[in-house]
Structure formats: structure tokens, C-alpha cells
Simulated assay, not measured.
Amino acid sequence: MPDVRAPADPRATWDLPAPGSLPRTAELEPLVTRVLAPNPSGMTLDGTNTYLVGAPGSGRAVVVDPGPDDPAHLAAVEEALAARDARCVAVLVTHHHGDHAEAALPWGARFGAQVAAADAAVAGPGGRVLGAGERLGLAGTVLGVVPTPGHTADHLAFRLESGAVLVGDHVLGRGTSVVTHPEGDVVAYLESLRRVHDLGPSALYCGHGPELTEDPGAVLDYYLAHRAFRESQLLASLVRGAGTVDALVADVYAEVPRALWPAAAQSTRATLAKLAAEGHVELDGDRVGLP
């Protein structure tokens, strides 16, 4: 029988803000202001975190993950820019999902700022397609482009000069991220977790939920262990007789609210694809079996 012991989440002992209590605007460090979008949900937690990044006194800032094209959110971002006495000089996007990217092109046009992303469709006409290892000298500071595919194929993170990493949906402030299917890739996701771990981040600024500053490496270790745990759970469920994706989700995610089961099914399908490639399971449409 596969080992199905759940790893301990180090954040359980941290003094993190309660769900729903994140402030609309917060100064995380001299380089970074976080502005919370008003789009809370089971998937987005408190809402999408939009980040303003720039050296104090530079008069400039980069907007990272503008989020939904919402008038109230735009007003909050413009207020935060004014508080920094800064104008937006670029819009960076971690990945194409609408809760991160919807406002990118309209806000880029409003601010007269170039949009940059790994996906040309997100960057838009006149935008910049970002590649691995680029160093963006913007707003009096430098942001390193870190490829983190897995959640989506086009996912990026941005490393700051302070050592913090803006991780988008690669790591969440609470819970774990979804590996989307069919474009998500568990093997790529695990490699990306290790890549961010190797950076030795001083903090993880997540796309949703609170910032993680106490022990970022421990959270990344937990994420790696959690993915191994899910694999073990799926194999154990197959041993018990589950034979379809729906049956596996109902068994493995029994304690998770049903509203989140569609997202769980995406991660399950992505994990099964990895296990099938390794020869541990056999797939036939929605049917799953052991070899």
C-alpha cells in the first residue's frame, strides 16, 4: 500500500492574517506595495494581489498582475501609485488567467506603459514577450524573470533585488495551487518549485493570500511533499477500487468543499498524466487503472 501520510504545512503555526482580513493596500517592503483586488472566491482566496514595484523616490513603478479590469481596483491602484509619487512604467503579468491578466492591456493603454508577459497574446500588440533569465531594469530597480511553468505553461515569477519573489499562482498564501489540465504539467511544476527554492527567496509574494516571509523554503518543501502525497493518495485510492477520475476526486478530496472539486479534478488529471508516463497507472479517457 502506498504511503499516504500527509505532510505538515509549516504555515499552520505562523501568525498569518485570517481569511478575508487582508487590507486593501499594504506596504510589504520599500520596493513593494500590494493592492488587493475585490474578487474574492474559493479559488482566488481574498482576491488577486496586484503588486507595485519600484525604488522609493524613483517616481516610477511597475504594476505586476493588474488582475480584473475593475474600476474600484483601478482606483485603488492609482491611489497607491499616487502615495508612492510614482507613475506606472510597465505592466508585468505572471500568466494568462483572467484574474491576473484581464486588466493588462486596458491598463497598459491607460498608463501608456508596455505590457510584458511570456504569452504574446497577453503582452498584446507592441508588448514584450519575456524569456527565461531576462533582467528587467525598471523603476529604479531590477526584476529577474524566472520561468515557473506548471500551473500554466506560460507562468513566470519575478525575483526582486531584495530577494523576494513574486510567485503568482505558483505558490499561494494559503492552501496549494492547482495544476491546470490539459496545459498544466506536474513534472514542470515540480521543477519550477525547485527552481524557486534554489533562489533562496527572502519572501514569497503570492498571487492570492498573504505574503510568506517566515520561512519561504519550508513552504516550498511542503509544496513538493504535498504533490508526492497526492500521488500516493491516488495510487492508494486505485488499490481500494476507484476506477474513474470522478471516483478518485470524490475519495481523495472528500474533505474539500465540493465547489472546489472541478479544480481538484484538473490537478488529478495532471497528476495521472505524470503517473501514466512513469508507468504507474493506465488511462483510458476518464477510466483509470493499475498496470
Rank of each mutant, 00 (worst) to 15 (best):
L156H: 11
P182C: 12
L143V: 06
G207C: 04
L105T: 07
A276K: 08
F229Q: 05
G133D: 11
V93E: 13
L160N: 05
P56V: 12
L248T: 10
L204C: 03
L52D: 11
L190M: 04
D85F: 03
S21P: 00
Q233H: 01
A90V: 02
R159S: 15
C206I: 04
V179Q: 06
P23V: 05
A37R: 13
Y189S: 09
D3K: 04
R60D: 05
S192C: 00
E231P: 00
R24Q: 14
E231A: 15
L283W: 09
P30L: 06
L212P: 01
H73Q: 09
T44D: 01
S232D: 12
R240L: 13
Q233V: 03
A55S: 13
V35H: 02
L212I: 14
G184Q: 01
H197I: 03
G54M: 12
A86G: 02
H96A: 13
S177L: 06
L234E: 13
R135L: 13
F229Y: 15
G20P: 01
P210L: 12
G124S: 07
V179A: 04
V63S: 01
R258P: 00
V219F: 06
R230E: 15
H100Y: 13
G241D: 08
G209L: 09
V145S: 11
T141V: 04
L224N: 01
A132G: 07
E278C: 00
E183S: 09
A76M: 11
H95I: 10
A75W: 09
P257W: 11
T152S: 07
P7H: 05
A120G: 02
G42R: 12
A276Q: 11
T244N: 07
V187G: 12
Y223M: 15
A132T: 05
R60T: 04
S237V: 06
G137T: 11
G59W: 11
A228I: 02
P38N: 12
A277E: 13
G131E: 15
P17Y: 12
V165Q: 02
L130Y: 04
G241C: 06
H170V: 14
A254I: 06
V115W: 03
R195G: 01
H181Q: 02
P182R: 14
V167F: 02
A247G: 15
G279V: 05
R230V: 15
M1W: 02
P2T: 09
P2L: 06
Y205M: 15
